[in-house]
Design a protein around this nucleic acid. Structure first.
Lengths: 234, 234
DNA sequence: TGACCTCTAGAGTAATTACTCTAAAAATCC
DNA sequence: GGATTTTTAGAGTAATTACTCTAGAGGTCA
């Protein structure tokens, strides 16, 4: 039996991701766990502490997916990175939507978050540079930096955006995964112009793997194909 | 003297952008205006109605910046579009951060927002296609579509993200404008690989115009320059 | 058994906040 | 100028919600 503290974080993360942190009260979390509010507050001083703990967890998870590159990087390494990071960002998707509110009020947390963003982007840049050294990418330093920023922003924003438009995804595992897949696809497209050599050879396959053609899924665009959404009442 | 309804929206927008919708109560808005809460609720049924009205306003503003392309498009047209849209998105920056919460609760508003995103992206795609027809851009249909999605996501997310990391921007006009400028820069870099002809000739100038070199500004990266952060453990 | 510590229950509270209600002022109309 | 409608004030309320407090259960070690 895992510790109560861990279980609180687990269910809090789940509820936050599904309904948004703002709609989830500490009493909800306790109730979902079958524990008392008092017990919850025994483990966490306040709601912010829960969010902060979830952020720490999230950061560590991302960090494990961004080891400093050692030796020559392959295209497979890159895809490995990409999937791992997106997966982690997906799991912590509520954070990028609701964390700003806490950053606003908690300078310490904000400092940590800023550091996290800077470190992550620095580490990501190293990976891109490694790929360039391996001849898989061709870009100037400035272009690489801009690419890194765009990749980061896209990766961070994608989950929150798509879930805002598609709340049904919270209850629909298939839709949820489709959204994640399209996020990866978008990042692949972002990098595409800079790819060279072996990476370029794999590009079409990568696109095909992550392209979402499912017309039942209404993502950002109206479903591809001739049918543009009929009226759909909610 | 402008109507009370309009003034409510104006100050609400200002306060929302500065402090985040969540931290701004209806009483705050009334107080900032020097009117009574009762008066505010005479004009707007509830807080959601205010947000919804701000969204309508925002949508119209964006829409005015995205006229359907007629005839051949020039690179100047494109930059005109870009600046106008980013400016509008900047003015409604709180929306992209706080709207999801209301979308979650108000299916009608969500339908409108979804429609807005789809229409906007469709219209944007037409513009890109116009640029392609003018020989300023070279890309496949699929690439163009992916580019459009990435542009949209970036444009929508940029204000919220950078303000989350840099809350000081709310009180600092200079910093605020610098963040907006860098947002435009990032989008220019996003499009850069697809540019051709005259657009390509202007690329360097565009980058130079919007590049933010101010080292006093701490945006996403650590300040540009040779000093890259030492090792920092998490 | 008893002392001690960790963990839990659950009723309760203080503060916030979106929103209401009544009455009166201001504008408009005839 | 009186009647009617629109707009405003401002005190007040109901509901939410983060968080507290006390008491006690359960485990461990002597």
């Amino acid at each position: 039996m895992t510790g109560t503290k861990t279980r609180i974080l687990d269910t809090a993360l789940d509820l936050f991701n599904r309904h948004g942190e703002r709609n989830v009260t500490t009493n909800h979390i306790a109730e979902a766990l079958g524990i008392s509010p008092g017990n919850l507050y025994y483990h966490f001083r306040n709601k912010t502490a829960i969010v902060a703990a979830l952020f720490q967890r999230y950061r560590q998870q991302i960090w494990e997916w961004l080891p400093p590159p050692k030796g020559a990087l392959t295209w497979q390494d890159k895809m490995h990175y990409l999937q791992g990071i997106l997966e982690s960002m997906w799991q912590g998707r509520f954070l990028h939507r609701d964390l700003p509110h806490f950053l606003h009020q908690d300078p310490e947390l904000r400092a940590e978050y800023t550091q996290f963003v800077q470190d992550g982007m620095e580490r990501g840049l190293q990976i891109y540079q490694g790929l360039r050294a391996s001849g898989l990418i061709e870009a100037s330093d400035e272009d690489l930096r801009a690419l890194m920023v765009n990749t980061w922003v896209l990766a961070m924003s994608w989950p929150g955006l798509t879930h805002g438009l598609n709340p049904a995804a919270a209850e629909n595992e298939t839709l949820d995964r489709a959204l994640l897949r399209q996020g990866i696809y978008q990042i692949v497209c972002l990098e595409a112009p800079y790819l060279r050599g072996e990476a370029l050879d794999h590009l079409d396959a990568m696109k095909a793997e992550f392209r979402v053609g499912d017309t039942t899924v209404n993502l950002l665009f109206t479903a591809s194909g001739p049918h543009i959404g009929e009226s759909s009442n909610g």
